[in-house]
Every structure is written in C-alpha cells, then in structure tokens.
Design a binder for these strands. Sequence first.
DNA 1: GTGGGTACTCTCTATTGGGAAGTAGCCTGA
DNA 2: TCAGGCTACTTCCCAATAGAGAGTACCCAC
Lengths: 125, 125
Amino acid sequence: MTVSLRELRALPGFDDTLLTEGCPTRVVLDHVTSKWGVLVLLALSDGTHRWGELRRAVDGISEKMLAQTLRTLEGDSLVLRDAHPTIPPHVEYSLTASGRELVDRMLPLVEWIARNADRMLPAAP
Amino acid sequence: MTVSLRELRALPGFDDTLLTEGCPTRVVLDHVTSKWGVLVLLALSDGTHRWGELRRAVDGISEKMLAQTLRTLEGDSLVLRDAHPTIPPHVEYSLTASGRELVDRMLPLVEWIARNADRMLPAAP
DNA sequence: GTGGGTACTCTCTATTGGGAAGTAGCCTGA
DNA sequence: TCAGGCTACTTCCCAATAGAGAGTACCCAC
C-alpha cells in the first residue's frame, strides 16, 4: 500500500510533476473533491437518479451548482447523462464504470470521517 | 465493504441525517476535500514539514490559503503545529494519528485518479 | 386559457481567493 | 552604526467565484 505522496510519485508512470498546478490529476481531483462533487457522486452511489431526486438527495445544493457539477462530472466521464426527449423532460443520471471505481475508493474515506467527525471538531455549539 | 451512501447510512450509529447541511461529517468533509486541504494533507504524508517547505511542496498555494488551511486542519485535530519560540520563528507541521488514518484512506483515491486522469479529461490541449 | 410538471439557464449580489506589502525581533556584514 | 535578512504569519484590496431566486420552454389536463 502506498503510504505517502513521495512513494506515489516513485511508482512507475509517475514523477515529481504529479499534482503540480494544472496537471490532469489536479484538475480531476479538484472536480471530484469540490464541495458538491463529492456529495453528488455519493448520491449516485445509490444508483440512477433524476434531476429532482438529486436536488433533494444533496441537501443544500442550488440548482445552478447541481447543473454545473453534473456537467463537470459528465465531462470527466464519471457521470452518465441519459436524456429522454419527452415533454416534460426526463433525464437520468448514473455513475459510469469509472465513476463506480472512483466512488469505491471514496466511500472508505467518507465512512472514516463519518465515524470520527464528532470527536474531531472543537466544541460543537 | 460499503458500496453506497444508502448502505453507509444503514450502518449502526448512522442515519438519514448523515451528510445533511451543517452536520459534523459534512463540516469535516468540506475541510478535508477543500482544494488546498487535500494537497496539504498529501504533502504532510511525507512527514514533518516547515512552513516554507509546505509553501514550496504545495504548488500554487498562496500564503493566505496555506495559513488558513493549516489552521482549519489543526482545528480538526488532523495536523499538529509545533512552534519553537525562537527568532527567527521555527514551526513544524505534521499529521496527528487521526490525520495519518485519514491520509491512509485518501491515498488510494488519489492514486486511482493519478492513474486515470489522462484518459478521463476531454481533449487535453 | 390557465396552471402544472421537469430540467435547466440567467442575472444579480454575497463570499471567497490571490497578490503583495506589512510585522516582529535578533543576527550578520559593511 | 545600522541596513538588510531570516521566518512565519497577517492585513488589505480587488478580481473571480458561488449562491439565491426568478425566468424559460413545451405540452397536457382542466
């Protein structure tokens, strides 16, 4: 198991430019770990959802940010947008195979935080 | 292994309020997955660093954001600040035991993104 | 012809982030 | 003697970004 950034950079295929500003890894990492990106991906870990469902599932997100986040994640091939040209519109969002792999690696992190968040925060009011 | 948000919420100790706005998990998650939070934690995965080293290690960070990020992560008990009251000042930053556990769960995610980022982005110029 | 349903998109304002200069006090070199 | 450097921040200002809320498109039921 990789235990540090140094080790990660030493793996075959990587070098010291990993995570420098503007490199592809940083770009995708920024999208995925953005405030709403994480929550949208988590919501989709449950399976396919429609726009309105996502809006309700991701507590606090505005319509603008939901649209923007979905477009970004779709651009990164993590989310699949399946639009049925009906009236009223019907659009379904789901994880791609890549998205599924990524979420599988995100869930342990989120689970650890969920287990430990309470004792970490300073004097929750 | 937990494979979805639904399953995570079904685990003992959790419920449907997990990840609602303002809940401790969301707060810590926001800190940890903020643009600079991830990169600072990754930099510290290599071991203890001084301020100037971190500034150079985290490509593109401003002094303002480095200070803010370090204070936030320290408040979350993820980073330890060890200041020696000398002139000129000498301050060392390292991961706490919690921080180490968290980074152990973050590295697989980052490694996966590093391996796949190139083919995910649309038409890299 | 009016209202409902869905998925956006636009506009305006509040918040956030970057850059650069300022701060503290001792120590070194000229 | 005294300017300048060392280090870890902090502050200020302005540009970029995020968010709230209203607007749009289109057809159907009433």
